[in-house]
C-alpha cells in the first residue's frame, strides 16, 4: 500500500490532482482511493487531500493515514501546516518552493533530520510558465513519478492525457509540459 497526503489550499486543485492520479493508477489494474478533508470549504483555506494505492481492493475507510509521501503544493503551507504529522521513518516529502532544498530545510525545524528524503520543485513557477496560472496539482505528479518511480514518465503522460481528455488540446499540452518539467527539475 502506498499512501499520499497532499497539503494544499482549496482552489489549488489538490482533489482534482488526487483523483487524476487515481484515474491513471486505476487504468493499470491497481486499486485507489482519492479523498479530501476540508477545514473550511472556502477558497484559499488550507486543506488536505489523500491517496491510497494498492494491488488489492482497499477497505481502510479511516481518514487518518501514515503517509509514504507528503506533497506540499502551496509554498506557504510548508511553514504553517504540520506537514510531518503521522510521519514514518521513510516518509518522503515533495515540496513546492522557489527556495533551494538547503534554504527550505534550514527554515523548517521539522525537516531538519529529513534532508535525504525531502525533495523540492517549484510547481508554482512551472505551472505559471506552462499552464499560465498557479495550478501546482499536475506538475507535482511529474515530480512524484521521478521520486517514486511508480511509472515511466512517458507512460504516465499518455495516461494523464486520457484523464484530461475533456479539456481543450492547448490545456492538455500545457499540463504535459508542466509534468515533464517538474519530472526533470525536482531535486
Amino acid at each position: 500500500m502506498t499512501e499520499i497526503r497532499w497539503h494544499s489550499r482549496a482552489g489549488q486543485g489538490a482533489v482534482t490532482g488526487a483523483k487524476g492520479l487515481g484515474s491513471v493508477v486505476a487504468t493499470t489494474g491497481k486499486q485507489v482511493q482519492a479523498y479530501a478533508l476540508y477545514g473550511s470549504a472556502k477558497r484559499g483555506a488550507a486543506m488536505n487531500a489523500y491517496n491510497r494505492i494498492d494491488d488489492e481492493p482497499i477497505t481502510n475507510q479511516e481518514t487518518k493515514m501514515f503517509p509514504d509521501f507528503v506533497f506540499v503544493i502551496d509554498p506557504a503551507l510548508a511553514f504553517s501546516d504540520d506537514i510531518t504529522k503521522n510521519d514514518k521513518p521513510d516518509t518522503q516529502y515533495i515540496i513546492t518552493t522557489h527556495l533551494s532544498k538547503e534554504d527550505l530545510i534550514a527554515q523548517i525545524p521539522a525537516l531538519q533530520d529529513k534532508a535525504d528524503r525531502t525533495y523540492v520543485v517549484d510547481c508554482m513557477q512551472i505551472s505559471l510558465d506552462t499552464i499560465g496560472r498557479a495550478m501546482p496539482n499536475t506538475p507535482i505528479l511529474g515530480a512524484f513519478m521521478k521520486i517514486s518511480k511508480m511509472y515511466e514518465l512517458d507512460f504516465f503522460l499518455e495516461n494523464m492525457k486520457k484523464v484530461l481528455a475533456k479539456f481543450p488540446q492547448k490545456i492538455i499540452d500545457a499540463n504535459m509540459d508542466a509534468i515533464t518539467r517538474a519530472y526533470n527539475e525536482v531535486k
Binding site: A18, K19, Q31, V32, Q33, A34, Y35, P57, Q61, T63
Partner: peptide
C-alpha cells in the same frame, strides 16, 4: 451511503 467517507471518496 456515508457522508464524505463514501460520498466524497473516489475509488475504483
Amino acid at each position: 451511503q456515508d457522508g464524505f467517507t463514501t460520498s466524497h471518496k473516489a475509488q475504483n
